[in-house]
Design a protein around this nucleic acid. Structure first.
Length: 497
RNA sequence: GGUUGGGUGGCCGAGUGGCUAGGCAAAGGUCUGCAAAACCUUGUACGGCGGUUCGAAUCCGCUCCCAACCUCCA
């Protein structure tokens, strides 16, 4: 059983059946971070969301080219300072050192969260020539003008020639934007307030600068994504993603640049992720309502009672839909941690189940198969990970019941169970990107496992002798050592807290 | 002020015009030497006010609140 993948397209504001431009292939572009400071946890959520998109498309059998850029020039602060230069000034480093440092840190965090690396990770500074060429094309087409060494995109001219399409993504109306004719600093060169710089003249103290037909300068913030998506995915491609906060002006301007340069809007499907909140409010450094990924993992923060495994954090993120805001709190993380443990333990239990059914005796096996198909169907519905997890937890209950004897293994055929095991594993680990941490065995793990078996055998002997004092002592001591013993029908099992 | 998206049970979080989301927590039961785990059962929910409808938490209007972005003010 297979359903069609539907995707919520920000452009149309509704779910659409996903049909790639070239059958079997998907071009996916995601706006990556501006690497001037440590990666924000909210960014992590966005990139985990797109990791799911990427993984699920792969699981559907598509050949995916996943491009996620690194912005290392042109993104200015409110004061007009380049974010990279600001980072360099604060850290007393060369701007490219800053970019490298925080790109490395970003990669470390994403790897820890078990996110797959993109196929191509281009940098804005590595594509200055492409960006200059793009500016030139836009000028040639009459949608940009040069003033004193800077080049501005002419939104009014663009709109006049393109049926007022500026604002199609964000819902903003150009006349509203135009009427807000308040003059901002260094905007006096613009013909209209809604015009935006695609190339900026570099002043004497500006470090990041390149030669161009318009003098020494640097590319505007939105330009790099237009240039790089076009270069690696073509003038028209399938999916463009990014955080909700980038919808305007960043993505709106990107579309305008693409259309302005080559008449194609770039992406056919736009996917936007929603924001991560903490304790019901936005994360903000100024009022202390913030936590870094590292602090979350280590527990070194007043906002959490303990450190959380990155895989628990990932699981936590998957419990909400990518288009909803998600509220991070210690209580919610505690719940996620327990749910994650329950899920992984069920997976471990499943490995040891022996199906004894066959022929007509396969009712439970059928239920397992149907439940799993339902979970996959939820993924087809706009990558609905929380619903997929809900279906999976219903399967967890069945797996536990099979082990506990409430459901009979006589009602599961071996073939069905083997298939179920494979497909569930694919969903959990390949698609959702979870990882069974306890099972990542090495020689030490092997030795520990053997030693535990010896201890459990001794304890079993004590229990057989009704020596409760000794058996409880062993259990308590192990508990203090971080190992939980659980007595079952077929002997005891153990797990690390 | 504008644009967009939200307000769901103790917490998190799906969803939908009538059919149990799920996780965590809580209560009762089964199992167990005890405990834990597991399994079974259970509960007050859809911000407020109107309207449409046989029926709305789900559609419409108004209002309050939250978030992102833009803008304004400072």
């Amino acid at each position: 059983m297979s359903t069609e993948l539907t995707v919520y397209n920000s452009l149309s504001r509704q779910k659409e059946v996903f049909t790639p431009l070239n059958a079997g292939h998907v071009g996916l572009y995601v706006c990556g971070p501006t690497v001037y400071n440590p990666v924000h946890l909210g960014n992590c959520r966005t990139f985990v969301s797109f990791d799911i998109v990427y993984r699920y498309l792969l699981a559907k059998g598509y050949k995916v080219r996943y491009v996620r850029n690194i912005t290392d020039v042109g993104h200015l602060t409110d004061d007009g300072e380049d974010r990279m230069s600001k980072g360099a000034r604060l850290e007393q480093l060369e701007p490219m050192e800053v970019a490298q440092k925080f790109a490395n840190q970003f990669h470390d965090v994403m790897r820890t969260l078990n996110a797959l690396p993109p196929s191509i990770e281009p940098r804005a500074t590595g594509h200055i020539i492409e960006q200059i060429e793009l500016v030139q094309e836009i000028i040639n087409n009459g949608y940009a003008y040069e003033v004193n060494g800077s080049v501005y995109f002419d939104v009014a001219a663009y709109n006049a020639a393109n049926e007022d399409r500026y604002g199609e993504l964000s819902g903003r109306r150009i006349d509203e934007l135009l009427s807000e004719s308040r003059e901002l600093k260094s905007q006096d060169e613009k013909r209209n307030p809604s015009d935006f710089a695609i190339w900026m003249k570099a002043h004497e103290d500006h470090i990041l600068r390149w030669n161009s037909p318009w003098g020494e300068g640097f590319p505007g913030w939105h330009l790099e994504c237009s240039a790089m998506s076009t270069k690696y995915l073509g003038e028209e491609f399938d999916i463009h993603g990014g955080g909700n906060d980038l919808k305007f002006p960043h993505h709106e301007n990107e579309i305008a640049q693409n259309v302005g340069a080559c008449r194609h809007a770039g992406a056919r499907y736009w996917i936007h992720t929603n924001m991560l909140l903490m304790n019901g409010k936005k994360m903000s450094k100024s009022d202390g309502n913030t936590i870094t990924p590292e602090e979350l993992f280590s527990g070194d923060s007043p906002h959490v009672s303990e450190g959380y495994s990155p895989l628990v954090v990932r699981f936590f993120m998957l419990q909400s839909h990518y288009r909803s805001t998600m509220d991070l709190s210690d209580e919610a993380l505690q719940a996620a941690k327990k749910g994650h443990t329950r899920l992984m333990e069920a997976w471990n239990i499943l490995q040891d189940l022996e199906a004894k059914g066959g022929g007509q005796n396969d009712t439970v096996g059928k239920e397992l198969e149907e439940g799993l198909a339902a979970a996959y169907a939820e993924m087809d519905d706009d990558f609905n990970t929380p619903r997929a997890l809900a279906r999976i937890f219903e399967l967890v209950t069945r797996i536990n019941a099979l082990q506990g004897g409430q459901l009979s293994l006589e009602e599961v055929s071996p073939d069905r169970l083997a298939d179920f095991l494979t497909r569930l594993g694919t969903l959990l680990f390949d698609v959702l990107g979870l990882r069974n941490e306890a099972a990542s065995a090495g020689a030490e793990q092997e030795a520990l496992s053997n030693a535990m078996q010896i201890i459990l055998d001794l304890r079993q002997q004590a229990r057989t002798d009704k020596n409760w004092a000794l058996s409880d002592k062993l259990r308590d001591a192990l508990s203090h050592a971080g190992i939980t013993v659980k007595d079952g029908k077929d002997g005891a099992t153990w797990s690390i807290e």
